[in-house]
Design a protein around this nucleic acid. Structure first.
Length: 596
DNA sequence: ATAGGGTTAG
């Protein structure tokens, strides 16, 4: 289109050509065309309306991401003869809000205020977008309250859904967001979506689910974005029944040609233990993005299916899909869960040499993990020394696991000290340290660590397992007696113990921390949350469907042994997701092959 | 003339 219909200056008649010019600005797609238009505006002395259009064109996301059109727009903006109007300011703020330099949008806003220009509701939606982008880029404290205050100062009513919906997502203080949400007199579909997504992104999946139900009670129909916002919460909780319902809803409403929706479903199935269904959805997709491949590769990894993850990566390569940093996190994780240390090294090197991707802290985390699991403690140490990054708690945590596997308590203590400096309030490290002392009978040190925890007000994170039944999630903490069926559950536990013992089960008491006698230790183990959850399931179901349990911590050695035997004795398949990976128990065998 | 909500990661 474009260049040919730009008016010739020698016989220009404004009225005849204004229409064409507007049209050109809407449809042309390159910076050079924009420059020609700029020249035309200058030659013909066109009014600010045309400058505004020019700025708008140069600052659209597609343009500014592929060229330096944004800089060009700023140049035009700075050289305007008259004071820019609010539309022009908004356009520039929007441009930078969507760019890699969102801070510049905030600076523009401050400049605008210095010049006495009054912001409007559009200004705030762009400004809020910039603030959100900033808090993603740098670890700055949230600008939310300040921006909210500004909207009040400049008279934006709380009935303005656009401004208030974007305010919800400015992902720091969720109590404030919840209050804002309740307070909003008008809620539209995006308002509900923003709040549900916000809960999901701040790891509050139960609240996301509650809001999802509340939304439907309010008569608001979920759309594609709602579905994508709720599925990660199903995934996190392992809420398969709800996830399946959402999948049906997606099919009924023909949302399944939306790649993002399908990606979220793949992730949900993988994290709810149904890796086969995840693969089915993957196969049925027409358009796949790198996210699609990544999601399934990571899914296979947590199921310990390293061979399949690698095969998928090979297929991805042949299809010409460019892997990214996340692809390799998934692949390395797959190698780690299978103990394939050689393959891990190969991908760690290929990632850099073949694909030019610099390893991030996550990649080092995976490498230390796989080196530790395969007892290459010195190599793990060497890799950490060679890292150009400061090791974080993830890397050190993997190193600590390596120390435990290799029984190097001297190094383990040193690593723990560093971890406790990095995260002084994380109870997990105190428990590990105490565990380490207990296993070598150093009870005085155990007491010292326990007192340290007490004085710092740190409590041990209780083991918690959840199981979904008839659309309700039942949660059990260790020693839980609050469930309505508690009595029956404990009777069932007794029955299970007897049956397992006659099948040769001896409780593995090696991980119990306290200086107790063997009988007390066994008692302590028998009420672990995952055992309660499994007993509850055996009590209430008799179908061939697998029992699915999600645990917040790592499954303990004794529970792992007991559940293997239960799967055989009771002829039930049990799928247990712990905080690390999946364990599929069937006929007395676990899919992890004792590798976890 | 300009707006709000979305997926993968030890």
């Amino acid at each position: 289109m474009a260049a040919t219909i730009i008016p010739n200056s020698t016989h220009f008649q404004a009225n005849n050509h204004l229409h064409n010019l507007s049209f050109t600005l809407q449809s042309c797609s390159s910076l050079s065309q924009a420059k020609q238009i700029h020249a035309c505006i200058l030659r013909n002395n066109l009014d600010e309306h045309f400058y505004a259009k020019l700025l708008l064109f140069c600052t659209t996301t597609a343009m500014s991401s592929t060229s330096n059109a944004l800089d060009y727009a700023l140049l035009v903006f700075e050289q305007l003869q008259q004071e820019p109007n609010i539309f022009m300011w908004n356009t520039m703020i929007r441009g930078y809000a969507n760019s890699n330099y969102p801070m510049r949008a905030v600076r523009l806003y401050i400049r605008m205020r210095d010049r006495g220009m009054l912001p409007n509701n559009y200004t705030f939606t762009f400004l809020i977008k910039a603030c959100t982008a900033m808090s993603c880029l740098v670890n700055c404290y949230s600008l939310g309250p300040a921006v909210h205050a500004q909207t009040i100062v400049f008279g934006i009513p709380d009935s303005d859904v656009h401004v208030y919906t974007s305010l919800l997502n400015i992902s720091g203080d969720f109590d404030v967001a919840g209050k804002l949400f309740n307070y909003m007199p008008i809620k539209t579909l995006p308002t509900w979506n923003a709040m549900i997504a916000g809960y999901a992104q701040s790891s509050r999946p139960s609240e996301a689910l509650a809001l999802f139900y509340q939304m439907q009670l309010a008569g608001v129909r979920p759309d594609e974005i709602t579905v994508v916002s709720i599925l990660p919460s199903c995934a996190q909780l392992g809420a398969l029944e709800l996830g399946e319902w959402v999948h049906l809803y997606v099919k009924r409403n023909k949302f399944d040609n939306n790649t993002t929706v399908c990606n979220a479903i793949i992730d949900m199935y993988a994290k709810c233990g149904c890796i086969d269904k995840a693969m089915d959805v993957f196969k049925g997709m027409r358009d796949r993005t790198v996210v699609t491949w990544n999601t399934l590769i990571s899914g296979l990894a947590i199921h310990g299916q390293a061979e399949e993850a690698i095969a998928l990566f090979t297929k991805m390569e042949t299809k010409g899909v460019m892997p990214d940093a996340i692809t390799f996190v998934g692949l390395l994780n797959a190698c780690a869960h299978a103990g394939s240390v050689d393959k891990a090294w190969t991908y760690f090197k290929d990632m850099q040499m073949v694909y030019g991707i610099q390893p991030k802290i996550e990649h080092y985390g995976c490498m230390v993990d796989v080196l530790g699991r395969t007892r290459h403690l010195n190599e793990a140490l060497g890799l950490i020394d060679s890292m150009p990054l400061e090791p974080n708690s993830v890397v050190l945590g993997s190193l600590l696991s390596a120390c435990r596997i290799c029984n190097d308590s001297e190094l383990g203590e040193k690593v723990l000290e560093r971890l406790m400096q990095l995260e002084p309030l994380n109870p997990g490290y105190y428990v590990l340290l105490s565990n380490m002392y207990a296993s070598s009978g150093r009870w005085e040190d155990v007491t010292r660590v326990r007192n340290l925890m007490k004085s710092r007000g740190i409590g041990k994170t209780p083991g918690c397992s959840s199981i979904e039944m008839n659309n309700t999630v039942h949660e059990f903490v260790v020693g839980d007696k609050t469930h309505p069926q508690a009595q029956e559950i404990y009777r069932k536990l007794d029955e299970i113990s007897l049956r397992l013992e006659s099948a040769g089960y001896v409780p593995d008491t090696s991980i119990v921390l306290f200086d107790l006698d063997e009988e007390e230790k066994a008692q302590n183990l028998s009420v672990h949350s995952e055992k309660l959850a499994v007993a509850f399931a055996l009590l209430n179901t008799c179908t061939v469907k697998p029992i699915r349990v999600v645990k917040n911590l790592r499954v303990c050695r004794d529970c792992h042994l007991a559940i293997k035997l239960i799967s055989k004795e009771y002829g039930r398949e049990i799928v247990l997701r712990d905080c690390n990976r999946f364990h599929h128990f069937k006929d007395g065998v676990c899919s992890c092959k004792e590798f976890w």
